[in-house]
Amino acid sequence: MSETIELLDVKNLVKHFPTGERGKVVRAVDGVSFKVYKGETLGVVGESGCGKTTTGRLVLKLLEKTEGEIIFKGINLSAVRGKELRGLRKGMQIIFQDPYASLDPRKTVFQTLEEPFRIHYPRMSKAEIAEKAELLIRRVGLRQEHILRYPHEFSGGQRQRIGIARAIALNPEFVVCDEPVSALDVSIQAQVINLMRDIKDDFNLTYMFISHDLRIIKHICDRVMVMYLGGIVELGTKRDVYEHRRHPYTKALLSAIPRTRRGTGGKAHAEERIILAGDIPSPVNPPAGCPFHPRCRDRVERCGTEKPALRTMADGSLVACHLDME
């Protein structure tokens, strides 16, 4: 890895949601530690309900964590609040999954793009803001005349472009992309992904890219974090994760990528499609031991009793499994 400046350092992050039943909580995120380096794209993959979206919201402090530490550019986010926190938010933004819910239906594109400047630069004149908004709207591939329209006049892809324009308005360093294309048609997905890639280069962005689509993760990410039931099962460079496939869950996930051409899946072990039995267990009552063991076909006795910690492999990847992985 060429870049090694730490932008974000997450330590033992925990988020429990109350269930309404006394003493029972949903362990949405249950002890997650990782770092994001400046300039990289960290992909986060996992099934629905594995806690990837919650993790994204937690690191931006859009949700209040239960435990753990989030350090953004050397500042502990637990310690800041109020005005100071709002100032820090300039540097970290989010692109949402649902382009129909992420724009205020009562505001024109201009009003949506105006807001970040109104918040952080209250002295900026309307003309200056208009100039900046036009620049943004053109940068994301929309036309100037779109600026006075309402969200319902746009298609999903166009709306997502507006969402991207809003996220980059304040020149942030770090952007959480929460499944930014999963609600779009496949033909539109590629356009939006490429736009996000170009913008990343132009604005020197760092992405935390949350997705369940392994092909998109492979296309855009430098490192990949695989999550299962609120925890990390594997974390490594894209190459290491996609080629070595150490953790049995990663193996199963990657074997599920549909292949259009024989052999594009790579190595010999990619031939067989691993079908996972059963559903992801309830995070209210996670299984003892390794959270994946009830569905794991390689499980040994130890998996049912002892939760595996993340181990560092020779190539620097982290894997949480009792099996011998090297």
Binding site: M92, D104, I119
Partner: peptide
């Protein structure tokens, strides 16, 4: 999400309520 977006832009509570929640 559009309310969360406003929070993430750094909007103060009053702004979020008056600009985004009440009009809707």
């Amino acid at each position: 999400e559009y309310v969360q977006a406003s929070v993430s832009l750094g909007a103060a509570n009053g702004r979020v309520i008056l600009q985004h929640i009440l009009p809707n």
